[in-house]
């Protein structure tokens, strides 16, 4: 994602830095791009429809397709390793929760009841989602199972604020 020519727009560039290409053209905010696991699409947040929502676009370009429709604030798309579901952050009544959408049925489940969740990230096995949240004014890491049943705090011992977790690739 680049801020170029004013405003946030999404560009594709080769890993060697060559082939810079604008992917989506709009006068709105386009940000938080994430590849689908098969590499064929990019999911991103945009307010092109009037409020922050999640869209999908093919890496070859074309029309962006809107993915989220419930509520007035849906951002931070993260695809599951099998590409079948998407975790994201949704705002409900002023509170920010981790939500999960089945991409085939479009069914949405809200997984957390904490108020200031951010940056969801799938575990490589696809069964847990780690995210940043706030407890007593401090940034902490937490995790929730994809069915919402198991919740745990991961970083209560840390004194500093914790932000933007991303699951490391598993290297043998």
């Amino acid at each position: 994602m680049l801020t170029k020519d004013g405003g946030s727009q999404i560009f594709l560039v080769g890993a060697d830095g060559s082939g810079l290409r604008r992917l989506a053209t709009s006068a709105s905010i386009d940000t938080e791009p994430r590849f689908s696991p098969d590499g064929g699409s990019i999911y991103f947040s945009s307010d092109r429809g009037g409020s922050p929502q999640i869209y999908r676009i093919s890496v070859t370009g074309g029309q962006a397709e809107r993915i989220t429709f419930e509520g007035s604030y849906n951002v931070s798309p993260r695809l599951s390793p099998d590409g079948k579901s998407m975790a994201y952050i949704t705002r409900v009544g002023g509170l920010f929760h981790v939500a999960l959408m089945d991409l085939a049925s479009k069914q949405v489940t809200i997984l957390t009841d904490s108020a200031k969740d951010e940056s969801p990230s799938f575990a490589p096995n696809g069964r847990m989602i780690v995210y940043a949240t706030e407890v007593n004014g401090k940034g902490v890491l937490a995790a929730v199972s994809v069915d919402g049943r198991v919740k745990q705090r991961l970083s209560s011992a840390l004194a500093a604020d914790v932000r933007e977790p991303a699951w490391a690739p598993f290297n043998r």
Partner: peptide
Amino acid sequence: ERGSREYNLALAQKRAD
């Protein structure tokens, strides 16, 4: 400070613009 940090970076840029 509410919501996505990355989205807020883009939103704040739009405000300055």
